[in-house]
Amino acid sequence: MESTGTQPEQTTQLTELAPNAALLVIDVQKGFGNPSLLALGRSNPAAEENIRALLDAWQDAGRPVVFVRHSSLEPGSPLHPDTPGNELQDFVEKRRTAEGRRGPEVLIEKTVNSAFIGTPDLADWLEAQGIRQLVTAGIQTNRCVETTARMGGNLGYDVVVPIDATYTFGDTGPGGEHLTADELSLATAVNLHGGGFARVVSTAEVLAALGG
């Protein structure tokens, strides 16, 4: 079940970003290193490096960042708030709590897939900041990242998804059919692009557009 790490090829051009485009860092938590999840096969080994690059670029420029943490209500979940897996991964937490951060930042706590259904209310926070463009990264590609991007698109935000700054795991459907993590990532790219929910791009495109 090893992932090739191959990411969907992108064709949507991104030439510039709004000065106050918000970076959403979704569920980059320690629990996703759980052996039971890794045994399913993980996509995109470069995801953490790309998320780190995006975070550094946003914070260095004083742009708004939204950190999102999933607190599962399911007993035994690696993301349950009573477990160490609920914590943000060290490289994210270090940047979230670093001194001297210049841009507006917020931590959203949620128990469902969408970051728009959490505390504090994400839409209210974005409105208060005058933000209408979102760049969504994190875990899992086909679950919380995709759900948040879909809902953001439905709410009228301009959503950009650097798909190589996300990852997921293989999964099995109701008939026993199995899709690899790479296949599920490709399905997310197709769903978001084809449905008009978001522009699916690469991390390199996003970083280049920061200077656009």
Rank of each mutant, 00 (worst) to 15 (best):
E205P: 00
G62L: 06
G76R: 06
T97P: 01
H70M: 05
A123H: 01
A187G: 09
Q10E: 13
G211I: 13
E16I: 03
N86C: 13
L73K: 14
N20V: 04
T111Y: 10
L38E: 12
F169W: 09
H193M: 07
G194I: 09
T180H: 08
A22Q: 01
A208I: 04
D56R: 12
L38A: 12
G41I: 12
D90L: 14
I131W: 01
V65W: 03
P64F: 03
G85T: 00
R95I: 00
H193T: 14
G130H: 04
V112K: 13
L79S: 02
G153S: 11
R143M: 15
G5W: 02
G76P: 08
F169A: 05
E146F: 08
W58M: 02
E105H: 06
S43D: 10
I108F: 07
V65P: 03
L207S: 04
E16H: 13
T172C: 08
L73W: 10
F91S: 04
S43E: 11
P81M: 03
A53F: 07
G118V: 11
L207N: 05
S202K: 14
E99L: 13
E127I: 02
H178N: 10
T141M: 05
L37M: 13
A21S: 14
R150N: 07
N44V: 02
K94W: 06
R102M: 09
G195S: 11
G175R: 02
A149H: 03
V201L: 11
V159Y: 01
V190K: 09
A115G: 15
A208T: 11
F32M: 13
G100M: 08
R63H: 12
F32K: 07
E48Y: 05
A18Q: 11
A165Q: 06
S43N: 12
E9I: 12
I26V: 15
L24R: 01
A165I: 06
R101L: 14
L126V: 02
A18E: 13
V28Y: 00
E49R: 15
W58Q: 01
P162I: 08
G138Y: 00
N142A: 06
A128Y: 05
D164Y: 01
G212K: 05
E93Q: 07
G195E: 11
G103F: 01
P19Q: 09
F116D: 00
K110A: 02
N154G: 12
S202Y: 08
H70E: 12
L186E: 12
E16P: 01
G31Q: 05
E74Y: 15
V145F: 00
N50C: 07
R95N: 01
G153I: 08
A128I: 04
T15N: 11
E127G: 08
H70I: 03
P19K: 10
H70A: 07
T166N: 12
F169Y: 14
P8R: 04
L37D: 07
T188K: 06
G176S: 09
N154Q: 13
N44E: 07
P8L: 08
T12W: 09
D158G: 13
P45L: 10
I131E: 04
P104I: 00
T4L: 14
Q7C: 15
